[in-house]
Design a protein around this nucleic acid. Structure first.
Lengths: 209, 209, 209, 209
DNA sequence: GCCTAACCGAGACGGTACGTCCGGTCTTTTT
DNA sequence: AAAAAGACCGGACGTACCGTCTCGGTTAGGC
């Protein structure tokens, strides 16, 4: 597999080359820089975030940043990819239980942050296909996969009609939550998540209202 | 109604004050500048768009731009607000007919452009509540209103169950289309719009699949 | 003779053309504008003086200024030319008396102002030969002529050796006074003028110290 | 001695402070920028000179210019101060020899250039006392000092009457040469310099014509 | 235990866009 | 037709940021 886009790992190759010489990179700088990037991204948005400030906040020099990432865009993308989904797995044994857990997760502070970041970053994605790919692979798809898995388990248990369009239904909740943050600037809260699940998602899954 | 945010109309007040003195603003400059802004926004994205180039393309001076808008962000926001929805009304007399027209409109080149622009602009909206407001009032809500109207007419005709969550359902199609553009960089095409309508929207409206 | 450079008199021709139609120019605007120009020139210098401010101070519009002068430089030059020498004639009947009067005039507030203005305007003169000509004809030469006349009368009275280089000697006092203002920013005062006359001018005229 | 006004030396202190950190300023940029500034100043004059062009000619960025000087005015002043007098010393052993050398120097191309630059810059000096001070200290006074020294040596040798006003006499030649350039736009040439020395300076020094 | 290469923070470098201001022109209404 | 007012184009100013480079100083090996 190719090297992960958005990250310059030239000095710390996985496949050991001709033996690394010189002082090795300080791995603690990575975390410090990415944390600072996330913080600024959330507080200020993509275009107010400056590499200089990220470096300063991380107690690093600009060169240390650019040694690891080729551009501001790649740095930010990598920072975003670090945001872990709120739930790793989502398996309570029943669709109703899973949906309950999903509802809770969808309105968590963590999810709101993810949505804000997504908004910040949309303009870059729109013109950098490579970064879009990184972003999808490392950020969006894991989240969608969570719901897709949930729905597939439900189908296997016979809780879902066999003709439900699972990939589409899986995108429904995240998409509407993102839309809401984009258009109001605020999280919708648990109330809003419940309204989506009850009013739109369940009917779309062929469940009675 | 209050003055529209994102636009400096100080020299052309709607409510005629103490008689305007001096040379009036040339309204043709507004159109020329906004058109240039939209063109650049679509071609280059928000942060590659420069005010200088917008002005030059419009055959205007930078001062003429900044006399009307206080910043690049406000200019762009106003330009976006000028994008008209592809359909002004959507009334074929039946829900099925309306949905057919909506499907067509949702995957039109025009809608795709609007979604791309929305992506370009999301990062600015995220940190400027005033601009977000302008944007919602003049761009998003008219679009949502179109679908809301359609659904309300359907309900009046008895084509919809009375307990359908219309506002939520109205956001469904645009939200998923935007999501798709954001995450793939391409329009989904008519195919994708049909899949949303058939697989998610109709069920959510309580219609048989 | 050609029209005086630095002044656009096209609408008030000396040689009566095809009879002037419409509203005649308001001659009071000329004075108001030139006065404002002088004031700003002295207070702020040539490059901080703006035509806008001159017009506003004169209670005029910019067009009224540009109808009369073709450029800021010409306006300023014309304003400078309006500064009258402190003494029109200088004839007490004896060289000593004339020199006394000259000394007094040379350190007057009026002369200091003229020198400041000269400093302000030097940079324009250096690259606009036409304006330099206007300036010499209407400002510098009348002043030099005053002293030249004084020295010629002295020679006729036999108070001067016949081989004195009168034009050169005539420039001596103004030149050193200007130099002083240029290099110190302040007038030298009567003391300084007396020192020039006694220590340099009189000896140069072949008079005993 | 205090820091030289008109120059931001904050990053290269003469008195070594707490050890300089980061990449040191490239001294070659100073020279390149100042040379470009002088060239443009002579060719175009003060107000046609633009910082952008200076930077481009020097192969520098605007930031590099503004890191060193706070404004165009300070940059130009510093550039002027770099112009070296055509003669460092002036000592032939006799007053006549020194005067001969001075005459030659006074009508050199170099002196004319200095006078043109002085004219360019006079308007800024008139309103910025700090810059005037820099200018005097680093440009005017060294030149005057040359002649003052010459006259003092002559006095020691007994070639001058003891009551000659040396500072005043020292200013005579440069002042009249500057005046000439200012008022004619051309150098007077050797002829004019000789006329000053023979017709005004020598008599003022009490020497027979 | 020293040598050397690559790291580190700091910050200067070339380039480019921002938003402001001014010169000179043009277009309104009013006189 | 001239007046005041002020919009118009063009272009310079001084600031800020991106991505690169260069300092002095540090931290691993390899010898």
């Amino acid at each position: 597999m190719a090297a992960v886009p958005g990250r310059d790992t030239s000095a710390t190759p996985l496949s050991d080359g001709p033996a690394p010489r010189g002082r090795p990179r300080d791995p603690s700088r990575d975390a410090a820089i990415l944390d600072a990037a996330i913080e600024l991204l959330v507080e200020e948005g993509y275009d107010r975030l400056t590499v200089e400030r990220v470096a300063t906040m991380a107690g690093a020099g600009k060169a240390t940043v650019y040694r690891r990432w080729n551009s501001k865009a790649e740095l930010v993308m990598d920072a975003v990819a670090r945001i872990k989904p709120p739930l790793d797995t989502l398996d309570t044994g029943s669709l109703d239980g899973d949906l309950e857990a999903l509802t809770t997760a969808s309105c968590s502070q963590h999810s709101e942050l993810a949505n804000r970041v997504m908004a910040s970053v949309a303009s870059v994605l729109a013109r950098e296909p490579e970064l879009l790919d990184t972003f999808r692979t490392r950020f969006t798809e894991p989240r969608i996969q969570l719901i897709t898995g949930m729905l597939e388990r439900a189908r296997e248990r016979g809780e879902l009609a066999p003709d439900i369009d699972i990939p589409m239904a899986a995108g429904l909740l995240p998409s509407l939550m993102l839309q809401h943050v984009l258009l109001t600037g605020m999280s919708g809260g648990r109330e809003y998540a419940e309204r989506i699940v009850g009013g739109v998602l369940l009917p779309a899954l062929g469940r009675p209202r």
